[in-house]
């Protein structure tokens, strides 16, 4: 293999005599190569047959893959070796023709379009104009039903959740949460009662309820009554891209979004402390009713989740 190749000038395939050296195989020992290829083909045959057997007896997937992959691989190696070592070694040459046509041909083509087109359009500008205008309008009109019927208009849906005044706070199984349920430093995912099993509830209404220690908690202005007994609730939708803010770092009191690592300060209005999130998580105003159940004072005071154009 280390010896330089014998010099051959590239020749054209057509008109080559039968004993031209370009038609000889590239291999120095065709017999050996033939044997190697035969072994490859035999291995390929055995393995693909093995694949059939594995399939028949419903063997484990890795056995199916190993026999199928190995079989095809050996067939492939054999075929490539056949092409590379036992077929005409060349090198062959093919002439490249200029793609561009002669000046006269080009002119004729252009004339056909420009002149004939011009003749058709001459003194028929009005017809052409009406047709183009009409089809243009049709094109625009045709877009309406296609686009419009694809989905409802957004309207106010992005601005509201299913949290209402006096909604009961329930956990994922639908059980109402009461004042004694969480120890300080604990967290749970909650929903407005009735939506915990719905897709919309999971996608939009999901809320994290954390019980914080009152000494460390800083109440935001205007939210003094929103976190009774240290129960603070934030929307679980990250304000970056809407992933659930599913990680809770208890020591640092951070809510972390595992998608792009935005971190929100639980003790201080869920203000983003790190990462790409631009806004605090909206806070849900809570109260504890006379029976000790946690309930919402109202819906969130702003849209939850990621930003969009219509959001103020």
């Amino acid at each position: 293999m280390s010896e330089p190749e014998e010099h051959r000038t590239p020749v054209s395939l057509s008109g080559l005599s039968e004993n031209d050296p370009h038609l000889l195989p590239a291999a120095k020992n065709p017999k050996t190569v033939e044997l190697v290829i035969a072994i490859n083909f035999l291995l390929g045959t055995v393995l693909t047959a093995g694949f059939g057997a594995c399939y028949w007896i419903n063997a484990q997937p890795w056995k199916l893959g190993a026999t199928l992959g190995g079989g095809l691989f050996f067939f492939g190696v054999g075929l490539v070796a056949w092409g590379k070592y036992l077929m005409p070694r060349g090198p062959f040459v093919e002439e490249r023709h200029v793609l561009a046509n002669s000046e006269a041909d080009r002119d004729a083509f252009a004339a056909a379009i420009v002149e004939r087109g011009g003749a058709v359009m001459k003194r028929r500008k009005m017809l052409g104009g009406i047709l183009a205008g009409g089809l243009g309008i049709f094109g625009v009109v045709a877009m309406f039903p296609v686009l419009r019927s694809l989905g409802p208009l957004p309207k106010g849906t992005l601005f509201h959740t299913d949290w209402r005044k006096d909604s009961y706070v329930v956990d994922q199984s639908g059980r109402r949460v009461s004042a004694g349920d969480l120890a300080v430093g604990s967290i749970m995912t909650v929903f407005p009662e009735g939506t915990q099993d719905s897709e919309r509830g999971q996608a939009v209404d999901q809320t994290v309820l954390i019980r914080v220690s009152n000494q460390k908690f800083t109440t935001q202005k205007g939210r003094e009554s929103w976190a009774p007994l240290g129960y603070v609730a934030y929307s679980k939708l990250c304000t970056h891209l809407g992933c659930p803010v599913g990680l809770y770092e208890q020591q640092l009191q951070l809510l972390v979004c595992p998608c792009h690592q935005s971190m929100f300060n639980v003790n201080n209005g869920a203000v983003p402390q790190f990462g790409p999130a631009p806004r605090p998580l909206p806070q849900l105003p809570l109260y504890i009713d006379s029976q000790g159940f946690l309930r919402a004072q109202a819906d969130y005071d702003q849209p939850v989740g990621p930003g969009f154009w219509e959001r103020a």
Partner: peptide, 14 residues
């Protein structure tokens, strides 16, 4: 073609 398919199958097996 056989080699690429074979390789993909082996990768998928293991």
């Amino acid at each position: 073609l056989f080699i690429v398919t074979g390789f993909t199958a082996l990768l998928s097996a293991f």
